[in-house]
Structure formats: C-alpha cells, structure tokens
C-alpha cells in the first residue's frame, strides 16, 4: 500500500495520543491502536518502513511502531 498514506495515518493517530502526558502510555496507546485496527499487512509494511529509516514518521510514531514491532515479535 502507499506508504505515504500509512505514514500519514500513523502520524494522525499519534497527534491524538500526543496529548497523553505520560509518554509511555502514549506509545502504548498508539501501538495498541495499530495492533487492534490495522490489517497485519499494513503493520508489516509500517514496521519495514521504520526499519528502512522511517521517513515521515513523527517521533512518537517511530517509538510506537518500534513498540508494535517488539510486541509482534513477542507474540510470534
């Protein structure tokens, strides 16, 4: 899928969770949202995008996608 759109969607989610003053909760919130609502193909793609530099991802989005990658590794 168009990675720019996925990056935009991830950043939009982060814009919401950025209001959370507890940074760890914000990261967990975004990662949980991606886990719950994104098709695995989209998650795989955004994780791969982070690994190849993560262009366009906000700071919170980078942390959250990293958290998502860690969580998925644990599950697998």
């Amino acid at each position: 899928m168009n990675i720019e759109h996925l990056v935009g969607m991830a950043n939009d989610i982060c814009d919401y969770f950025a209001a959370e003053s507890d940074r760890d909760a914000a990261v967990a919130g975004v990662a949980g949202h991606l886990r719950k609502f994104w098709d695995p193909r989209m998650r795989t793609q955004i994780i791969a995008h982070l690994r190849s530099g993560g262009a366009g991802l906000s700071e919170l989005a980078r942390l959250a996608v990293q958290r998502l990658a860690d969580d998925e590794r644990k599950v697998a």
Partner: peptide, 10 residues
C-alpha cells in the same frame, strides 16, 4: 483485523 474500505482501495 482485516482491511477497512479505504485500505481495500489502497
């Protein structure tokens, strides 16, 4: 989870 409508288009 599966694809949402806009994801299907993508």
């Amino acid at each position: 989870p599966g694809l949402r409508i806009p994801n299907m288009f993508e």
